[in-house]
Simulated scan of single mutants.
Amino acid sequence: MPGQISIAITGMGRIGRTILRQIALQGKDSPFRVVHLNDIAPLETIAYLLRFDSVFGGFPGQIETEGDALILNGQRIAFTRSGDLDVDLSGVDLLMECTGKARTRDWAERGLHRGAGGVLISGPSPAVDVTVVMGANDAALGQARIVSNASCTTNALAPVLSALDQAWGIESAHMTTIHCYTGSQPMIDAPRDDLARSRAGALSMVPTTTSATSLMDEVLPHLAGRISGAAVRVPTASVSSIDLVVQARDLPAGDLRGPLKALAELAPVIGWTDWPNVSSDMRARPESVILALPETKRIGKSQLRLFGWYDNEWGFSARMLDMAQRMAERRP
């Protein structure tokens, strides 16, 4: 398809594979063309994990391997197993850096040194030009070539805080993310730097921290020092939530569900539901956050409690693709 954005992905973990699955589901009309995949795991292992996914189910298409290539719905995609990304990326518009290891500038710049036009990192990193969350600080993108897409929780929280602050003014807020377990937690008790996270992730609720707390000061600096946060990891495999209490300056009178719905409908990355949903209902939802309107509570004249769902893999991967499109639109 003429004018497609050429993409390479390094790191075929949960986010790398989910990005590839979403592109494949877009079919022939996709604005993206994946031209290269890189991971330290064998190609057959990556192909197997694409075919069979414990969260999203079987892949709705054809997956084959041939030599050093993945054949995805008939399209041949080159595959390499390079720990240092020793790969020629000349002509690639954007490298999706999904290894989770881009913490230094040298690592973050690898894609540029290999020839890619830009690098989009699937997580927080102190080594980037800028951290951008769609629906919160989109204008910060500018001409940055190494960009962090922040974290899944930051993508859920920041657009909501931005919308609330613009509408009603935020004095302070506290968020608790109720987050499914991730690969950073062991399946059985095993040593970790965070002692609570050393416990078996599928057996206990684990109080811990969230990177969203510090990232909020970066993404919404005018609210710096007014937002706090914490996390509880819970024994589910997918979909997380934010439980947010906001002290506002100018809450409207009456039932707040209608005004919240109106705010959500002005923000493409924010969804809403009127149903008494549970987490599994939100699997593969593409929004950054879905406000659960029945959970809305007003406390006195100025305090608001909100609850929002987010698929921390699918929704975050959707924002990676949105951000990739934004970055590619700057091409001369």
Rank of each mutant, 00 (worst) to 15 (best):
A167D: 10
A167L: 12
W168K: 13
E171V: 14
S172W: 01
A173E: 06
T176G: 07
I178C: 05
I178Q: 07
C180H: 15
Y181C: 10
Y181S: 12
T182Q: 05
S184Y: 04
S184I: 10
P186C: 11
P186V: 13
M187A: 06
M187L: 05
M187I: 01
M187K: 03
I188Y: 04
D189Y: 05
D189V: 07
A190R: 14
P191N: 07
P191Q: 07
P191A: 06
D193L: 03
D193G: 04
D193Y: 03
A196Q: 14
R197D: 12
S198P: 04
R199G: 09
L203R: 03
S204C: 04
M205S: 14
M205G: 10
V206N: 10
V206E: 05
P207K: 14
T208D: 12
T209W: 15
T210W: 01
S211N: 13
S211G: 12
A212D: 06
T213D: 00
T213W: 00
M216Y: 01
D217G: 15
D217F: 05
D217E: 11
E218C: 07
L220R: 09
L223P: 06
L223G: 07
G225W: 09
R226P: 08
G229V: 03
A231S: 10
V232P: 05
R233Q: 07
P235C: 14
A237D: 03
A237R: 02
S238L: 11
V239E: 01
S241V: 02
S241M: 09
S241W: 02
D243P: 01
D243S: 05
D243W: 01
L244T: 09
V245K: 09
D250G: 07
L251G: 06
L251S: 02
L256C: 04
R257A: 13
P259Y: 08
P259D: 10
K261R: 03
K261N: 01
K261E: 04
